[in-house]
């Protein structure tokens, strides 16, 4: 299975993950500072800043786009419960 790497800048942990993994599935396991609420892309609790490698995340769905807009999320921010890591390397930290 293709692999990808996600780096949680706030705790200095790099995790190798299978392509297709959602950020929240990893951040929770390593104790990164990204917390979650509904896990369904509605509450915006898991807003995450993408420091680099944003192109390695699957594009936001219509739902995620709307939630980011409603919550006035700055550029380069994603919902950890929605964003899937497709490959390469992504560096993130809590928003």
């Amino acid at each position: 299975m293709p692999k990808a790497k996600v780096i949680f800048e706030d705790i200095g942990v790099a995790v190798t993950v299978p392509a297709g993994t959602r950020l929240i599935e990893v951040s929770e396991k390593v104790g990164a500072g990204i917390t979650y609420g509904c896990r369904e892309g509605e509450c915006c609790t898991c807003l995450t800043k993408v420091i680099s490698g944003g192109d390695n995340l699957a594009a936001p769905s219509v739902l995620e786009d709307q939630v980011l807009k409603d919550n006035m999320a700055p550029r380069n921010h994603r919902l950890a419960c929605q964003a899937q890591i497709l490959g390469g390397e992504v560096v993130v930290r809590p928003a």
């Binding site: 705790i11 200095g12 942990v13 790099a14 995790v15 190798t16 993950v17 299978p18 993994t21 599935e25 990893v26 396991k29 390593v30 104790g31």
Partner: peptide, 18 residues
């Protein structure tokens, strides 16, 4: 170390985490 922001950088595989 985590409390004071001095956690040692580390690399792990998701499969190794419980």
């Amino acid at each position: 170390r985590h409390l004071v922001g001095e956690a040692m950088p580390r690399e792990v595989d998701l499969a190794s985490l419980s």
